[in-house]
């Protein structure tokens, strides 16, 4: 975290999801980019304003899935046709017998992809992270229950302690506070 003015950012609390959507829209229009919203449930419109574009998760899932499927197929190929060959049901011991290898290939593809989805999502989110400056904000424990927050971070080039607070106050929030680093 950049020690701009020694604080993490300025946080405003709103009373409804719609107010938060409105506020994040206005903040984006005002040119703020390094900001984040905190809400007790996902709000698509807010995510769109705060982080437009790609999440990066699908790419990880695809790569993991392909690695999993190849692992499954290659393992079976080695086991069945190279290292320990035996004839079952009169079927040939070569690649023409690929069909019987599909179930395990499929299952391992799914398994690895699921791990990719979960751990990829956590890694991209930087979790687990037990401490974070926003937890210092007043009433932040309500962010997981019924309160809606927008935080403009001091790392933003447009950030100015006074002017940013002024801007957030103009969005009709319940309260505005500075978040210590």
């Amino acid at each position: 975290m950049q020690a701009s003015n020694g604080i993490y950012g300025v946080m405003a609390e709103f009373d409804s999801p719609n107010a938060l959507i409105e506020a994040s829209k206005k903040a984006r229009e005002a040119g703020y980019r390094k900001m984040d919203a905190y809400s007790p449930f996902p709000i698509e419109e807010v995510s769109h304003e705060v982080m437009p574009g790609d999440t990066g998760v699908p790419r990880i899932v695809l790569i993991c899935g392909l690695i999993g499927a190849s692992t499954g197929f290659i393992t079976q190929y080695i086991g069945e046709f190279i290292d320990y060959t035996y004839i079952i049901g009169g079927r040939p011991n070569n690649i023409t017998n690929w069909a019987s290898m599909i179930p395990i290939t499929f299952e391992l593809g799914i398994l690895f992809a699921a791990f990719g989805a979960v751990f990829g999502m956590l890694a991209l989110n930087g979790l687990p992270m037990p401490y974070h400056p926003v937890f210092n904000a007043p009433r932040f424990e309500r962010a997981s229950q019924d309160a809606f927050f927008l935080c403009i971070e001091s790392a933003d080039p447009l950030f100015d302690r006074g002017r940013t607070s002024q801007f957030l106050r103009g969005l009709n929030p319940l309260q505005v506070s500075e978040v210590a680093n």
Binding site: S24, D36, A37, Y38, S39, P40, F41, P42, I43, E44, V46, S47, E49, V50, M51, T55, G56, V57, P58, A117, V118, G120, M121, L122, L124, N125, L127, P128, M129, P130, Y131, H132, V134, F135, F140, A143, S144
Partner: peptide, 17 residues
Amino acid sequence: ACGWRGSARHWHRYEMA
């Protein structure tokens, strides 16, 4: 909770996952 803080960026990736 792994430090879950309901961030909109997190929710976005979370919903995708």
